[in-house]
Every structure is written in structure tokens, then in C-alpha cells.
Nucleic acid binder design. Structure first.
Lengths: 199, 199
DNA sequence: ATAGGTTGCGACACGCTGTGTCATAACCGG
DNA sequence: CCGGTTATGACACAGCGTGTCGCAACCTAT
């Protein structure tokens, strides 16, 4: 979508997806998702409303900028896993690694985004697509790591269960924001299924 | 929302939620969800656009009219459960009962809708809200049946796991349409959690 | 029959999202 | 300086969702 190298010639961009996303996230934290219009974001970033929609196809897309790179990191961790290890251990480690929170700023944003997920319909409408990567990665990994058939029942269940565990951890966190996300994720991911290559 | 008995006095309604939903679904089948505006639905039903929003708060709400009554049936089954039975047995029975397919017509429709769920983004956008009932009902039931704290981790996990099981069964069914839904649901629901009132 | 209360509806206006179109600004190389 | 290229802004438009207001259509009581 956004080219790696600036093509030769042409007017240089006055902003970037990253800058727009940062601006938007700051405003969301200040006033809340629905109290911030695209016009507000564009004005704060010094561009027109139309330009915002050239970088993001919808207002809520700005919430999932990190998701793409997280998916890549997740897939890499799974690809590099020792084939002899239990699939569920690897899956748990990889998921925790990707969701690790390093700074207070990132914690605040992650919490707010999670709150939006569980309260704003416009955000909920995108969850399916946002977690598609997790579902399919978890499924494919479970199939190859346990030797289950590609179209079998078990890998499908693992993919769905992985997403459910993520949502469980985040939902608990949102309802207990004084706690930390990681323990909740650990607990949710510990409710895993034993490997079963039969189906 | 819509009163059970017509109140005394006042102008009688010229339409109903049921009539609007039927009209809308017919148009959706003909042209597709996004190719039908609320104005179109209202016109086809012989009312104004404003009146549509008096019966449904959003356009997409009419997609899940059946889901609402299913939720009520589900909640009733859970409410009538023997308090001494294992929560997961009751949950499984109730979920299977609600999803039981009685006629070939209903099977075809259920399969078609499931296929839409796993392929059409416009439909996927509604899934979160559509399954909100199952999530919250499963959660509340798990809490009271196992004696777990209302805000505890375990009920949250049960709610999410219930939805994940539903999706797993349906996803497997969509990918193997020659099989039946119920066995897939049984298998998915059998991957349940043991009751744990501690958390 | 008429008056007053109650309830559904249509008309209108408004802010917001998302899209299409077009002119223009700001860079490139020759 | 001059086309070619790319990002942007201005504008228009359909659609969603909400608020408000006056009116229409029913009721019951007098």
C-alpha cells in the first residue's frame, strides 16, 4: 500500500500513516473515539479530511496500524519454533511476546484500544478482520506442529480458541484496569487444548 | 422496546418490526446488504426513513432479528437449569437445542448464512454484536452456576469460549458442507473447561 | 358529539462517514 | 523552463443516525 522507497518525482507527502495514527490515538485518549471526528484528526495533523481517507479507508482503521506488524512478528515466531515442542507452549509464548507492553504510554494506548473493542460498535465491526491473522496463523501452525490434517477439526478449533483466549485476557483487563494484561493472558492461554492429531 | 400489548389510545402503528425486517431481508437477498439503503426499505414498507429508525436503531440490526429470539430461548433454557448440574453440560445442551435444525429449508438457510459469515466482510462486521447475547448469557450462567465471582476471570473465559465453540463448529461445517452442523458443534462444545469457582 | 390525552408518523434540519472528481501544488528529470 | 509524476485541497454527493416539531389517528370521559 505505502511504497517502501519514495518514487522519483512527484509532490512529497506532507504527512504519513504513522503520523496520522499517532495524532488520532492522542485525540482518542483525550476525548474518546466517537467524540473525535475525522475532521478533527485531519486538522490536528494539518491536512484535509480527504487526505486522511487516502491513508486510511475508514476512521477505525487507524486503530489497527500495529496489528499488521504484530501479525508478521507472530508468524515469524511460530515459523522459527522447534518442531518437537508442544504446539500450545509455542503458541502461548508467541502470543505473550507479541502482546508484551514495554512503556506506560503503550500500556495506556493498549488499554484504551481494548476498552474501545468492548464498547464501540464501529470498532467491534472490524474485530473479525483484525483477528483474521491470528485465527489463520494459529490454525496453520497447529496443523503442521501436531500433524493434524489441514482441513481437520482440531486446527480450526485451535485458531478460534487462540482468538478467544486473547479476547478473554483483554476483556478481563478492561474490567480490571488496575491489574496488568500479561497475567490475564497467561491465565487465558493456559486453558488450552491437548494436542490431538487424530482429527 | 416494543410493548407486548397495544397501549390504550394513540394512533395505531402502520407497520411493525417484523414487517420491516421481512421487507429488508427480501431486498437484501435481491440486491445485497450495501446496495439497499434504509430509504429503500422504508419506501418498500410504505413508511418514512425516520420511522425505520424508530423500530431499529441501525440498518444492520434487521439482519439479526432471529438471533434475538434465539438468545431469549437460550437464556430461558439456562434459567430453567437444575442448579446442581455441571455448568458445561447445561451450556452444551442449551446451545445445541437452539441450533437444532429441523427442516431441509432451515438447513439450507443456516448453511448459507454461515457461509456469509465466513466470507462476506459486510456480514462479518455484524458478528460481534450478533454473538453478544451468547457471550453475556454464557458468562452470567457460568458465574451463578459455579458460584464464581461476577467479575471473575472464569465466567469471562466461559463466555468467550462458548462463542469460540459456536464459530468452530460453524467454520468446520462451512468447510465440510456435506456433513451436519450438530456433530461439529458437539465436538467443539466438548472442549470445555472444568468448573472452577476459585477465580 | 366533542374535548383532552396519548401515541405513531412525516417533514425537516443537522453533523458525520465515506466516495468521486477535478484543479492545483510541489517535486523530478531533461 | 517544461512535461511527467505524485500528493493534496476544494467541492459535491449519497448515506447513516439523531433531534425536533407539528400533525394524524386512535382512545376514553363527559
Amino acid at each position: 500500500m505505502i511504497p517502501m522507497t519514495r518514487p522519483l518525482g512527484g509532490r512529497p507527502a506532507t504527512t504519513s500513516a504513522r503520523e496520522l495514527a499517532d495524532t488520532a490515538q492522542t485525540l482518542f485518549l483525550e476525548r474518546g473515539f466517537e467524540q473525535v471526528s475525522v475532521e478533527d484528526i485531519a486538522a490536528a495533523a494539518g491536512v484535509s479530511r480527504r487526505t486522511f481517507f487516502r491513508y486510511f479507508s475508514t476512521k477505525s482503521d487507524v486503530l489497527w496500524v500495529e496489528t499488521e506488524s504484530e501479525n508478521i512478528q507472530f508468524a515469524k515466531l511460530l515459523a522459527a519454533a522447534d518442531p518437537d515442542r508442544r504446539y500450545d507452549e509455542v503458541l502461548t509464548e508467541a502470543a505473550l511476546s507479541v502482546h508484551r507492553i514495554t512503556t506506560p504510554d503503550k500500556r495506556a494506548w493498549a488499554l484504551h484500544r481494548a476498552q474501545l473493542v468492548f464498547s464501540v460498535p464501529a470498532v467491534q465491526a472490524q474485530i473479525w478482520g483484525a483477528f483474521n491473522g491470528w485465527r489463520s496463523e494459529g490454525r496453520a501452525f497447529a496443523a503442521r506442529q501436531t500433524g493434524s490434517p489441514e482441513g481437520g477439526f482440531f486446527p480450526v478449533a485451535v485458531g478460534q480458541a487462540l482468538v478467544a483466549a486473547m479476547l478473554t485476557g483483554h476483556q478481563f483487563w478492561v474490567e480490571h484496569p488496575e491489574t496488568e494484561l500479561e497475567p490475564a493472558l497467561v491465565q487465558a492461554l493456559s486453558l488450552h487444548l491437548p494436542p490431538d492429531p487424530r482429527f
